[in-house]
Computed example of a mutant assay.
Amino acid sequence: MDRRNFIIAGAAFVATPAAAAGGLVIPASSTDSELRGLSPTGGKAFWASGSKGWVVRGKGQRQDAFRIVGAEALDFRGLHAFDDQHVLAMSAGPGEASQLWRTRDSGKTWTRITTNQDPDGFWDSIAFVDKKRGFILGDPTQGRFTVLYTNDAGETWARLKPEGVPLAAANEGAFAASNGCVAIGRRGQVAFCTGGAGKARVYLSRGGGGVFVAMETPILADAPSKGAFAVTFAKDGTLWVCGGDYKSPQGKGVNLARLAPGALAFEPVAAPAGYLSAISAKGDTVIATGLAGTIVSRGGGAFERVSAAPMNSVRLTSKKAAVLCGPKGTIGLWKA
């Protein structure tokens, strides 16, 4: 499945809006990196990461771009910022191209802390429960998805017992498109989503990741480019999943579904057509984005398109604001 498609430069960059559409402001880019990793740290502050070893520290329209020495060839598709100073950047790629780097001084210096030693492995996403406990999801090896766990803020990782993860279907894999294919819920819930094997699936654990149950979604995954790309838990316990076909960004078909609290099956949700690679929920606001643009539902209402600008990732910072990132270093700032 082809889903994987010290500082040497650091520039303070203050941009003026280059475009605004439907509440989305897009400042001028500070790098040409394909940005996919995204992690807000409070208020208007956030971190983003992407290809060619680039990471971006932002605050509103201000962007500080850094390129990590020794990681210039890596594609940092995953990112988790504990705070403004302490950040983990995860690269995605086959074998040793999957790595984890850390800064504790706001990006001035970076240290590689671990490298994937499985030549068949490929890391897709990283997510944390709190400041110590976290997960890395990797594509299947030995017939099952790789789920790594840390309880020391990422210093050491161990694979969860393989028998706790159901066997993967032929050609099934996760998408390293937005660092969104793993989600952490309340009371120990962990979920990840997949594609490429007929119906897109969500693997759900209600016990802290020990045992997962695979559930089908109504999102089609009958080609390597199709499936579920991202999941998120809402505060009320609803589990949202989005996806589509990245090779056909404007394609029709189910691109959004949800598992209501206590429900036994995912149900499709009406939404504007097009491929969605990331989703975020806060309060009664749900926002999703992808190469087809950005859609939003507020107060339980219908999803409406607020921008046609292509993006890769989105994170709500409040019920009325979000930060997005995407191709060619694009940063987006949405306000209701």
Rank of each mutant, 00 (worst) to 15 (best):
F6K: 13
I8D: 15
G10S: 14
A11S: 14
A19G: 02
A19P: 01
A20I: 11
I26N: 03
P27W: 09
D32H: 09
T41F: 08
T41P: 10
T41M: 04
G42W: 13
K44D: 15
G53R: 13
V56L: 07
R57D: 02
G58D: 11
K59G: 00
G60M: 14
Q61I: 07
Q61D: 13
D64W: 09
I68F: 04
V69C: 04
A73Y: 07
F76H: 12
L79S: 05
F82R: 15
S91N: 15
S91C: 10
A97W: 08
W101H: 15
R104M: 06
S106A: 14
G107S: 03
G107R: 03
G107W: 11
N116R: 10
G121H: 10
D124Y: 07
S125R: 06
F128G: 04
P140Y: 00
T141H: 09
R144P: 00
D152L: 04
T156V: 04
L160P: 06
C181H: 02
R186Y: 02
A191M: 05
A191E: 09
P218N: 06
D222G: 12
P224R: 11
P224L: 07
A234Y: 01
A234P: 14
K235H: 14
D236T: 14
C242E: 01
K247C: 06
G253A: 03
V254A: 01
L256V: 07
G262H: 06
A273T: 10
I279S: 07
S280P: 08
G293R: 08
T294K: 07
I295F: 02
G301N: 04
A302L: 03
F303A: 06
E304D: 05
P310A: 08
M311G: 07
N312I: 02
V314L: 01
V314R: 00
L316K: 06
S318P: 04
K320L: 04
A321N: 09
V323F: 10
L324T: 00
C325H: 00
W334F: 12
